[in-house]
């Protein structure tokens, strides 16, 4: 068990290194550079060259990679070229918006999808199951940004229950801050919930056909008891896989939804930094997202071991 976890950890670190190289290369291959953006269209080539030199952009690629990667290991994420602020604290500050948004959205997604998925799976031969299934299909078809616009129209513009956009910092007014996260989190969470519901439903349908569920029924358990005691844990194995992938798409969805609701989070920062060719910020943010995805996959891997003794003892 410990050996298996250690192996996974080594793989995680190796993936992070490879990912950092990829991120660095891809970001630096983007056409256009910050010096041209900063100096505007009237800049002379000499001025651009001077600025490039002062920003360190004329150094070889490998050296710049090592400086960047080495800096991250010490917690130094570089300095934004445009705002002249260190990127580390900047990201941390944006995380106070994006973090709660993602967590709230994930919580909403789970709170909605687990019960609906189970009910739709158990009752898949009945009308109620079919209705839930159709609703979730509809949910998949709706993009998060459109769900966000709809929610904003109804709950912000018409009913005036929540703000339609913007964000007041937690330190100023925590209640207002929480309120402005509600609609984006619901938009993001519901769309995620629709996808998860589909997977939970089919996992539940599949598990009910398993022989061991019939054995459980032969012991005298009711349909529901058999599902609860023998079905859920087995059904969780395929669902956890999807959960890992869904968390990734939650992060992507957050970028879009933050722009819809004008939330000053990581998504907006990424969006603006790409436009401004503020490469160091883009690089750090993409790296951060990559690290989150890899970490989630690592956790998914570990949870298989907890859920499935066959994997646990095979290693």
């Amino acid at each position: 068990m410990t050996v298996a976890i250690a192996t996974r950890l080594v793989a995680l670190v190796a993936s992070l290194v490879v990912a950092s190289i990829l991120v660095f290369v891809v970001v630096n291959l983007l056409p256009g550079d910050v010096a041209t953006v900063m100096l505007g269209t009237n800049a002379t080539p000499e001025n651009v060259a001077a600025l490039r030199h002062s920003l360190g952009l004329d150094q070889p690629l490998w050296l710049r990679y090592l400086q960047w990667a080495g800096g991250m290991l010490h917690g130094d994420f570089g300095t934004s070229v445009l705002s002249h602020t260190p990127v580390g604290p900047l990201i941390l500050q944006k995380l106070t918006v994006s973090g709660p948004l993602a967590l709230l959205a994930a919580a909403i997604a789970l709170a909605v999808s687990v019960p609906t998925g189970v009910v739709a799976g158990v009752r898949y031969r009945r009308l109620s199951g079919a209705v839930l299934s159709a609703l979730s299909l509809g949910g998949i078809a709706i993009p998060a940004f459109w769900a966000g616009l709809l929610l904003a129209t109804v709950f912000a513009v018409k009913l005036r229950l929540f703000p339609a956009g913007g964000f007041i910092d937690w330190t100023e007014d925590p209640v207002a801050a929480a309120r402005s996260l509600v609609l984006p989190a619901v938009a993001l969470g519901l769309v995620q919930a629709a996808v998860l519901t589909r997977f939970i439903r089919s996992a539940i349908i599949d598990v009910q056909r398993e022989d061991f569920i019939r054995t459980a029924r032969a012991k005298g358990l009711t349909r529901w008891q058999a599902l609860q005691r023998h079905g859920f844990r087995n059904a969780a194995i395929p669902v956890v896989t999807i959960l890992g992938i869904q968390i990734t798409s939650l992060l992507v969805g957050a970028i879009v939804i933050e722009n819809v609701f004008v939330l000053p989070g990581l998504g907006r920062l990424l969006f603006q930094s790409v436009g401004n060719r503020d490469l160091i910020v883009v690089q750090d943010l993409v790296m951060l997202l990559t690290a989150v995805v890899l970490a989630v996959n690592f956790l998914v891997d570990l949870s298989y071991r907890l859920l499935d003794p066959r994997i646990r003892t095979a290693s």
Partner: peptide, 21 residues
């Protein structure tokens, strides 16, 4: 009644047992 008065043994013991219990 099932499991108490009436019981059944199945053909394939691998799939008839819960793999995670």
């Amino acid at each position: 009644l099932r499991g108490d008065r009436l019981a059944m043994v199945f053909q394939e013991p691998m799939s008839a047992l819960n793999p995670v219990m």
